[in-house]
Every structure is written in C-alpha cells, then in structure tokens.
C-alpha cells in the first residue's frame, strides 16, 4: 500500500477511530497512541472495506478490544464498591450516558465479556449489531451479557472495603 493511500485512510477514518479510543480510554494522549496503534493493525481491512459502514464495524471491533485491554492494564485497583450505582446490577441508561461509569465498571470484566458489554450497554448497539460487529452469534452475545450481569451484580454485592 502506498504511503499516500495510508495517509488518505488515516485522514478518512482517523476521526472515528480516535473518537472510539477516546470514549473508552478517557484520555487524549492515550487515545492518540491507541488510534495510531489500532490504525496500523486495521489499515488493510479499511482499505478493502466496500463502504464506510463496513470500515466502521472493523474500527469498532478492533479498537474496542484494544482499548478495553489498555484500560484494564492501566487499572491499579478494583473499583471501590462505594463508586458503583446504589441499585444492585446494571443501570443501562446510566452506562450509556456516563463514559466514566462505563469505563470503571466494564473494564473490570473479563475481556470477551467486557467487549460485548461495552458495545451493547455503553455504545447502545442492539444484540444483533453487537453480533455483527464482533463476528459472533447472537446467542454468544446474550450469554456474555448474562456473564456481565453476574459480574456487575457480584461487584455491587461485595461488602464495603
């Protein structure tokens, strides 16, 4: 791929890719690094995507996984029980509205569960959309959301530290 083509792809898809990373990581510098790294992993798929919608699906798939792993690695302690919603379980509306809450809660889940939870709860995708973006079955999406629900419920049920 020529350098011109590479830069053209970055100009076209960089904004959406950066926004995706920024939403998960919550930090401009970390998001810029993540955008560059995931672009280098994605550029062939972006070049071959038949349209922008397919390209965006790739961006969401790869960048979500990468950034959730980054967010998890950056955590040095568990989410304090006091910071979680009072209502046991998960308030989907609050996760949609608050990136900070989504980041603190979802990044504590195992990687494959966190990725499904973020796309469905923080990004507002339907289960079918999540299945399509990740290339998995809807049943798998349902099962992982159930796993996340149990994970969140377990966190909320812990005694105060």
């Amino acid at each position: 791929m020529s350098e011109d083509r590479l830069h053209s792809l970055y100009r076209t898809y960089g904004p959406a890719l950066y926004a995706r990373c920024r939403q998960i990581l919550g930090d401009d510098a970390a998001a810029a690094d993540a955008a560059q790294e995931t672009f280098l992993r994605l550029h062939r798929q972006l070049d071959r995507a038949p349209d922008a919608h397919h390209a965006l699906a790739w961006i969401y798939r790869v960048a979500t996984n990468y950034c959730l792993n980054q967010a998890r690695d950056r955590r040095r302690r568990a989410v304090p029980v006091g910071d979680l919603p009072d209502t046991p379980g998960v308030d989907a509306e609050r996760l949609l509205e608050s990136r900070d809450l989504a980041r603190r809660l979802i990044s504590t889940a195992p990687p494959k569960v966190a990725e499904v939870a973020w796309l469905h709860l923080a990004d507002g995708m339907t289960q079918d959309e999540v299945a399509q973006v990740l290339g998995i079955s809807r049943r798998t999406v349902v099962n992982r959301l159930a796993d996340f629900h149990r994970h969140a419920h377990a966190l909320a049920g812990r005694p105060p530290s």
Binding site: A16, L56, G89, D91, E93, A122, M125
Partner: peptide, 23 residues
C-alpha cells in the same frame, strides 16, 4: 436486575451518520 434501556441510537450509527455512510 438489568434495567431495560430505552431505545437509543448506537455510537456506530452516530459515527456513520457523521460520515454520511447511512442509507
């Protein structure tokens, strides 16, 4: 118990709208 979320537009669709990538 996970509350059912009201219907909203996904982030991917918002990005697609911004890129004029929707039907």
């Amino acid at each position: 118990m996970m509350n059912a979320a009201p219907s909203h537009v996904s982030s991917l669709k918002l990005d697609a709208l911004a890129m004029d990538a929707l039907s």
